[in-house]
Write a protein that binds this DNA or RNA. Sequence first.
DNA 1: CTGATATAATTCAGCACTCAAAATAATCTG
DNA 2: CAGATTATTTTGAGTGCTGAATTATATCAG
Lengths: 404, 404
Amino acid sequence: MTSLVPDPTRRDNTLAIVDTLRNQGPMARIDLGTANGISSATVTAITTELLRHGLVSELPAEPHRQGGRGRPKTLIRLEPEAAHVVCVKLSLNEVQVVAGDFAGQVRHAETHSLTTATLTPDTLCDVLEEHIQAVSAALPGGPRRLDGICLAIQGVVSPASGMLIWSPALRFRNTPLTGPLAERLGCPVMLENDTNCIASILARQPAYADTPNLAVIMLGYGIGMSVLIDGRPLLGANGSAAEIGHSKFEPGGALCACGRRGCIEAYASDYALYREAHALLSLPPGDSAHPSEAQMQALVRLAEQGDPVARQIYHKAGRALGYGIANVLALFNPDLVLVTGSGVRGYAAMQPALEAAIDEALVPELVGASRLATHPWDRDMTCLGGIGLILEATDPMRLTDLSS
Amino acid sequence: MTSLVPDPTRRDNTLAIVDTLRNQGPMARIDLGTANGISSATVTAITTELLRHGLVSELPAEPHRQGGRGRPKTLIRLEPEAAHVVCVKLSLNEVQVVAGDFAGQVRHAETHSLTTATLTPDTLCDVLEEHIQAVSAALPGGPRRLDGICLAIQGVVSPASGMLIWSPALRFRNTPLTGPLAERLGCPVMLENDTNCIASILARQPAYADTPNLAVIMLGYGIGMSVLIDGRPLLGANGSAAEIGHSKFEPGGALCACGRRGCIEAYASDYALYREAHALLSLPPGDSAHPSEAQMQALVRLAEQGDPVARQIYHKAGRALGYGIANVLALFNPDLVLVTGSGVRGYAAMQPALEAAIDEALVPELVGASRLATHPWDRDMTCLGGIGLILEATDPMRLTDLSS
DNA sequence: CTGATATAATTCAGCACTCAAAATAATCTG
DNA sequence: CAGATTATTTTGAGTGCTGAATTATATCAG
């Protein structure tokens, strides 16, 4: 077995090769070299080592394929079994647990309801440990050793220290989470903001490869954002950067859940839209504090069918969100602003007012400097992103099978 | 002469040593090693090479000094004569030209008035070339070869492409500047936003060493900002990030120079303060479009003496700026916000309203997460920062004297 | 089927770098 | 002056990367 602490250069090259294989699929040695700017000889050296430890394998040659002449490429692929990781997404009254393999493929997914508001740090860890153990056991091949866990939590977290600062789903604050969980589960645990997970997986998509400065706005019960600067999420001093939801539309404006007035969230989030609508319109019944998907869809439908009250509500929301986005454009100057989250269902209804507001608010020099688009919402994206992040953070050197 | 393209590791280590010497002054080899995490043997190898090329020299041992026992340290210092750089700061109707040596010390400084609005790209280059040549000739030791030039321009610039995007001082836009100037002057030219120069030199000060996420707000005729994220300036897609001046206080508010309404700048910049004041108060005479320093100081004095109109003007400005800063805190979550620029003269008058506005606007979870302070204004800071940046960007490998 | 051609992967020789340890240098203490 | 102490330099070993040469495996033309 080779040294566990190799030369930093070798380490960088190894990580680059593994990441390339994960993001772009099986690839020949020579292509791995050109893709990462290293010589083919070095790729051979590195892949030989990885093969020896079972982290990658050679794809059996397929007879037909390959139009070209000379010796056919031997594709290298990540060995899916080499590692198993889990991403746990914790949001209000729901916990989603997804397991993935070394190649980043999802192996198993579960969603559970629970009352999050009454959890203590201890009972939260109990619940998470239980669910994670269950998922590990449910993996094909019986209980598997887990090589890393990503905790994706809505709210403010500090990835560096592993502390939960504040989450709308939980009553307690400023609590270390990764330490206790890592101890209970015996594997590395990382903590991330849920929106950063989504942004990271969006940034990996080829469509957004040329937009390294990316702002991803999440519309939902609240409004969140993740800003990628040169591909890396902006964290800020204590992990609570990019709080667009509580940036201001107008002083003394609508009351926000945070207690202040005039926050963007107080106009364009689900709870704000619902608050305006439920007294004036007849929507399906539900919990008054937390509008259901059915209720929100009914509201959007009304707006799309031309109901003046619903239209007015979305117009106001679009205007507020437009002003918020204009500030984001002025302050971050991103290549692209991507709007997603369950709230995109109402984007079309907001769009005219939103775009007009941006035109009205944005300094003329910046008009047209950034693109604005939506991305369809998929509730599993968070965990996919978290699996990508924990795999990226998982040191291949540590996975080496000691028996070899 | 050794290879011009050394191993990247060696290159990194060499740059680290030169930067350490520049920022922390003369230092012994062993301390250079511990400061940069490299072995003393490697430091010897690198300094030997630098000595050979005349980029550093050994400080003559001072007999007394050194309380300690064993062999005394031999201090290495940057050889000031090894390079000469110039920073040119272009602002409305003024150009400032400052020359510095390899150690970062100012050698010569000039300030000239000119009418910037009528300049074309060509005539601008003419003027700059002339001034730079003059400064090069004025250096002790006659005309010196210049090893790098930093162009610090107010407005939006693209450091990567060397393009001026837009500046309030100039009529033309989207024009390449570094290319033509480099050709005329025969040395590398870099382009930076003036505020980024100031932020970079502030960040280097020991007092701000522990605040890698720093927002520097420049109050003056307009309002600018530079945001350092982990010590690096945020540029954005085309260099126009951090435009706090045109972030919004209130929809439909005061008219801004940019043509929009409600920008922070339309309340708290010199021109906005003056616009409010000059009809109501008796201030010293001056150009109505560009208030003079004397006029602005008179206005501040009135506010400090309790004049209700002046106080009201600064109150309103403070409130708008406070809302702007609250957005910056929510979106960037910096360790520290530093307010500087000539406009700090009015900070005390704005402070109560400013702090109240932040309390009123900032989401409670973030209150207290960032510090807020002012930094005394010094109009030479820009060029000092620019000299630091161009020296940092100057590759020591390229300075090697070919005759050695 | 054979030889020419083409491309991929591996091996090899050479070089650059770092580091730990040993050697050397320069100073102070008693 | 003989240690003791600290700084710097030299040396030897180890590791990594690369280009060139070599080997492996295919297609193509006839």
